[in-house]
Design a protein around this nucleic acid. Structure first.
Length: 273
DNA sequence: GGAGATGTTTCAAG
DNA sequence: GCTTGAAACATCTC
């Protein structure tokens, strides 16, 4: 599920626990979401501390407990945050449950592609060195130009998934961005001209803002004018051209685009395949 | 039963 | 040394 806006929505899911102290920590420490994390110090660092702050950055989440304890969560492919009753009995895929006064904070992740990190005294390294948010004014066109130059042989679809430049952009957002910018997902980064780089930069921001508005703030899917509504299954049509959408694997991920609107680099006259 | 899934990491090859 | 693409991770759903 989780890209930029879904992660922002997850950030808010634990809000009911704000200001309350952790009374008990349940963790399935053998699960890979904890990687090399020392569960004993996680428990020690959280017990008795109040949930004070929750921040999202790209696909990363950081929850601060007390002044010193920083709990990082990456939801991977199937992670979810929710609250449950204080007496909640962890279900099969509930790998971390924090019992506070009156409710429990639950991290569920069936596929176990998520990751939990913990920092005491200061946030973990990745959080301190995170790249500019794509919604911030520091996210400038030059960053897009640089990564396209550096990864000049990679398809632009794969480049957009680079979290060190486009934090929060995932598979559906990348397709949405390219569709709006009228750039074929298989175009090589080094092949984009200055105007295309500029369009890409602009649409990264537009899709990020729109996704946050619909998904995180209003809690609904983006409207039918977005590719989002049409891309998931075979047989969809482009909401702008009315033509049949194409789905293929690019950069190892299912990719959907609108032929004609996004011209195929191998077929300069007609993008239909 | 098989394929595929909104993600990252690792590793071998160029 | 850098870049690239494929495989691996674990489970569920269609």
């Amino acid at each position: 599920m989780p890209e930029l806006a879904e992660v922002e929505r997850a950030r808010r899911a634990w809000d009911p626990g704000r200001g309350r102290r952790v009374e008990e920590v349940f963790a399935r420490g053998d699960k890979r979401i904890f990687r090399a994390l020392d569960i004993a110090s996680l428990v020690r660092g959280l017990l008795g501390q109040r949930l004070c702050d929750a921040e999202a950055h790209g696909k990363q989440l950081m929850f601060r407990f007390g002044a010193q304890s920083f709990l990082g969560v990456h939801l991977g492919m199937s992670g979810e945050l929710r609250t449950a009753a204080a007496v909640h009995v962890p279900e099969r895929h509930d790998h971390l449950v924090l019992r506070l006064a009156g409710l429990s904070l639950v991290l569920r992740d069936p596929r176990l592609f998520g990751r939990v990190t913990f920092g005491y005294g200061r946030p973990p390294e990745f959080w301190r060195t995170r790249p500019p948010a794509i919604t911030s004014s520091e996210f400038r066109p030059g960053l897009v130009r640089d990564v396209c130059r550096r990864r000049r042989a990679s398809p632009i679809k794969a480049i957009l998934l680079d979290q060190s430049v486009f934090p929060g952009v995932g598979n559906w957002m990348a397709d949405e961005i390219l569709w709006r910018a009228r750039i074929h997902p298989r175009r090589a980064g080094g092949d984009l001209d200055e105007a295309e780089v500029r369009r890409l930069w602009r649409e990264v921001r537009a899709v990020a803002r729109g996704a946050l508005r619909w998904i995180a703030e209003q809690g609904v899917d983006p409207p039918a004018t977005w590719l989002f509504q049409h891309r998931w299954t075979d047989g969809g049509t482009c909401p702008r051209s009315g033509r049949r959408l194409v789905r293929e694997t690019i950069g190892g991920r299912t990719t959907c685009w609108s032929p004609g609107r996004q011209r195929d680099p191998g077929r300069p006259r007609d993008g239909d395949s």
